[in-house]
Amino acid sequence: MIAPGFASVEAQLWIWIMAMIRPGAALMVAPVFGATSIPLQVRIILSAMIGIAAANSVDINLPDSTLISYSGFVFILGEVICGAAIGFALQIGYSAAFVAGEVISNTMGLGFASMSDPQSGASSPVIGSFLSIIAVLLLLAMDGHLMLIAIIVQSYEALPPGNALVSSRVIFNLVEFGGTLFSMGLIIALPVGAALIIVQLVMAMLARSAPQLNLFSVGIPVAVLAGIILLAMAAPVLADGMMRAMELGLEQSEVMAGG
């Protein structure tokens, strides 16, 4: 027999577990939190902390039937979609650094050089991995991780659990926002990429005027050296572009949290 003081413990535990679904889905797809280097136990603890804190601000009505039912499935699916949309919007802004790194790597002649990305664990160009590390540091410096947590908590007021129905208009805005990934990536890579194209044109004219010059043995080292120098010179501009892309991602996350 359960003591009278503990009669509602099981119901409260189920409420907390259901409140963990949305932040858990958001942290799984968001940058920094969703990195392969972050242990699963850490994400579970963070999801519990955010979910329990957010559950105190709204009333969570669990499905009348069991969770293994249609109403329970709809409840869980709505929470997963809402949380994943919030985290994915920020991920789009963050991934602009990868697009910029891909463009710069190909222009420098380093498209063949790849390394394991610490965020996703997949293979990516060396410049893309370098810019992704900078993007992580910038995101933490601008308190983007704290802003994301605040957006998740605020979403419980606009989209309470059990009624987390994201409108089709908001989903369309998220899909349309995906185009920002490529536009912002090209804007970030534009200063270095445009200068490297000029370097490639100069090397092409030298190879045309001096056919005996081995373009592969001279052009690739020159392009790599010019790229490194240009990256150092354009670092403030690249940082501003990446921060702007992530700010747009946070703004879109806030739109998704509003339903």
Rank of each mutant, 00 (worst) to 15 (best):
V166N: 05
Y94H: 14
G227Y: 05
S37W: 04
I188P: 08
G51T: 02
F73R: 01
E102H: 11
L13W: 08
D240I: 09
I104L: 08
A210N: 12
G128R: 08
Q119T: 13
G72P: 03
V175Y: 14
S65T: 13
Q41E: 09
G78R: 05
L213D: 07
I76S: 06
M18G: 15
A55S: 15
A245D: 08
G5T: 07
M1A: 14
M28H: 06
I60V: 08
M142K: 12
M243H: 00
A30K: 03
V74C: 03
M147N: 10
S71K: 05
V9K: 10
M147G: 03
A234Y: 12
A89Q: 02
L110G: 09
S120R: 06
S57A: 13
L146Q: 10
V222Q: 01
G83N: 00
I188E: 11
P191W: 08
M1K: 13
T180R: 12
I104F: 07
M246V: 09
G111I: 10
V103E: 07
C82R: 00
T180C: 10
A96G: 13
I187A: 15
P31V: 02
S253C: 02
E251A: 15
A19L: 08
L138S: 13
S124C: 06
P31L: 05
M49E: 02
L196N: 06
G5Q: 14
I220M: 14
I15E: 09
G34S: 02
G258D: 00
A235Q: 11
L215H: 08
G219V: 12
L174K: 04
T66G: 14
V166G: 04
G87V: 05
A11N: 14
L248F: 10
L46S: 02
Q252Y: 04
G162I: 12
P23Y: 04
N163F: 11
Y94R: 03
I229Y: 08
M184Y: 14
L215W: 05
P221V: 12
S167T: 15
D59T: 07
G87H: 03
G83M: 01
R244I: 06
I197E: 05
L250H: 04
P39Q: 07
